[in-house]
């Protein structure tokens, strides 16, 4: 029996303490937002926070969580479901494509902005390089982090494209 809090709630699971947090969270607690991508801490899709620090849940045993606090993508919004600035920026900048990596991206970006509210491009690259996006949304991830940080403005409301001559990037 391993006891911990997850998204603010006290929980326990009957599991081999060597089982990765990822599988305990997905299979036993039904929280499927945390994703399996590589199983070897190489892609970041499984990123959760353990006592606030981003960790790769596919390679961190649930035994490590004993007495500690896990936060998953399902637990970052406010008590009434208010989205965080990072989540809002992910929507306003239309970041996701398939979306499979985005829980991990958002968890990594959330930790980055908490520790470094005005990150430079180099800071963003360093903090986010552990998270693979196979669809290739990196340009938007970088921009959305800056939007969430208030460094760059959110995009204007959608508008009509001209029929010829090209829409501006």
């Amino acid at each position: 029996m391993v006891k911990f809090t997850i998204n603010g709630e006290a929980k326990s699971v009957e599991a081999d303490p060597a089982m990765p947090i990822l599988w305990a969270v997905r299979e036993q607690l039904g929280l499927n937002g945390t994703k399996f991508g590589c199983g070897a801490a190489l892609c970041g899709a499984c990123t959760v926070h353990l006592d606030g620090q981003p960790v790769r849940s596919c390679s961190t045993p649930i035994g490590e969580a004993e007495g500690r606090a896990i936060t998953t993508i399902e637990g970052i919004a406010g008590p009434e479901g208010e989205l965080t600035k990072v989540q809002q920026a992910w929507i306003s900048e239309q970041v996701p494509q398939c979306g499979y990596c985005q829980s991990g991206q958002i968890m990594a970006a959330t930790a980055l902005l908490r520790d470094n509210p005005r990150p430079s491009d180099a800071d963003i690259d360093a903090a986010m390089a552990g998270n693979i996006c196979r669809c290739g949304t990196y340009v938007r991830i970088r921009h959305a982090i800056k939007v969430a940080a208030g460094i760059e403005p959110a995009r204007a409301a959608p508008g009509a494209a001209p029929l010829s001559g090209g829409a501006k990037a």
Partner: peptide, 13 residues
């Protein structure tokens, strides 16, 4: 640029 309908649920898990 109508916003995509599938994006909100992809940022909440």
């Amino acid at each position: 640029d109508a916003p995509r309908t599938d994006i909100p649920e992809k940022v909440t898990g």
